[in-house]
Design a protein around this nucleic acid. Structure first.
Lengths: 118, 118
DNA sequence: TAGATCACTTGTAATCTGCAAGTGAAATGT
DNA sequence: ACATTTCACTTGCAGATTACAAGTGATCTA
């Protein structure tokens, strides 16, 4: 269900990088094809991990967001980021430091952010 | 690097189900092809996540094991199992209960088991 | 109202995967 | 000693999946 090259990246960027629209995803990943992105967004939606709403300010856009099920992946993503930081070259040292310092606080902040609807 | 259908399952079963040989993996997953299994074991080895040693009791067999880098995936796998248990139908309720009850203790036990060389 | 932007869809070629059948080395049975 | 079986793979090939380029229609902007 998450066992493909892009799904977890999409969730990560919704959760940690504030991505919201198709264009943001498409522009960011080197190499993701338009049809594959559309397919993954659709499958994640079908699995109830993300949701989509029309943008009230621009009728062409859709705004993607995490569902409760998607937000519950925060501990998984956090551990993955920490693992990658420990064993591979990764950027984003600030984020990693914040996670390491107080994991529970970090997770609580993510949940809080989504509870507030942003 | 782990973004495919089988790699994380292989790591999970090395870590939690005590799998050690090619045959165990092959017999367990419905549908994994022999060449794909060989390929994944090789790639995981190349990435330093698993290692392989010849079986001293049977010259045909290889014994696969987790490296330190692989063992460090325990928190990721644990959170994934807990997420799946909360949101999908999964078996292995005993394992899930043990993880939930004391996550740190559970992780310490995994590390201990590997430190002892089993 | 012409052109740009947006989120896709479609077509096609290349790549990857799944399955069946094989291979060689090592173990087992007689 | 020799045939058979087991083991961990490899090989060949058809079918599925993916990447890339080029649209498409609805919506926004100048």
């Amino acid at each position: 269900m998450l066992g493909d090259r892009w799904s977890l990246l999409i969730i990560r960027d919704l959760m940690l990088r504030g991505f919201r629209t198709y264009k943001e995803f498409l522009g960011c990943y080197e190499g993701i094809a338009t049809n594959i992105l559309a397919d993954r967004l659709q499958k994640l939606t079908a699995h109830g991990i993300i949701g989509a709403q029309p943008d009230p300010e621009d009728g062409r856009k859709w705004i993607y967001s995490l569902t409760a099920k998607g937000i519950d992946l925060a501990p998984v993503l956090t551990e993955m980021v920490l693992w990658a930081a420990a064993h591979e070259d990764t950027g984003n040292q600030a984020l990693v430091q914040e996670m390491k310092k107080d994991k529970q606080k970090f997770l609580a902040a993510i949940r809080q952010r989504w509870a507030e609807g942003k």
